[in-house]
Design a protein around this nucleic acid. Structure first.
Lengths: 118, 118
DNA sequence: TTGCATAGGGATAATTTTATCCCCTATTGT
DNA sequence: ACAATAGGGGATAAAATTATCCCTATGCAA
């Protein structure tokens, strides 16, 4: 793994949750897994902007942080399924709230975000 | 500003909120401003791990995204105060939920996060 | 006259995160 | 023999984000 040069700061709850949720695709992965898209290839189709490689890396981190579990079936071709752990499920309401806020303010946000990229 | 080379994707609410909340210190800035720490020097003291420069940059983005407003008083030495906009205030419950989750799971998270950095 | 507090920002370096490229596994079907 | 399928990962390049360094300005106090 990558060896940090700048120490983590884990002072408060916000730092802690940040450590497990930061990552360009992590929240979406949790969301789609919660929706029942369990297999890597499904997730890749859902999040087609991300490369396979990066999804694998972020999935592995989510697993290390005990938010998801991975089951590998000994079949050919291989079959893998991810599921949320109970711990991971406790994040779903929060992720839902984040998405809801974004949806509720979609028009405004879209224009604000695009404005600066002129 | 920095010119993106990889296009943004703003497909869903999660993308949109991500665009305004990603940034190492943004959530904390919103939180402390909400708690009444309005002046840049106060914020810097609160978030002493961040350099002044970076806080300024992130504050500016928060302002551009209409989450905070900035008032510059014409006095010497200079005085500046940030406040949440009504729009920004709607994020506070969500930020509170994030921090709460982190606090609730502090012990577990701390050990999980540190485990991988061996 | 030097130093301090307060706020700001350009230029550049360092760090971290993502993306890209190419290779590997094993079996089933053509 | 050989592609197709489904999943995985090392090495490296690129992009994005943060950090560092140093400069600006003003009025007051020591």
């Amino acid at each position: 793994m990558y060896e940090r040069k700048i120490p983590l700061n884990l002072n408060c709850g916000l730092d802690l949750i940040g450590e497990v949720l930061y990552g360009k695709w992590k929240i979406r992965l949790l969301w789609f897994i919660n929706e029942g898209h369990k297999r890597p290839s499904e997730l890749q189709r859902k999040i087609s902007d991300a490369s396979r490689r990066v999804l694998n890396m972020q999935l592995k981190e989510l697993e290390q942080h005990e938010l998801i579990t991975k089951v590998i079936y000994a079949v050919v071709p291989p079959k893998v399924e991810y599921s949320l752990t109970d711990f991971g499920k406790t994040l779903i309401p929060i992720i839902a709230a984040l998405g809801q806020w974004g949806d509720d303010n979609e028009t405004r946000l879209r224009s604000l975000i695009l404005k600066e990229n002129v």
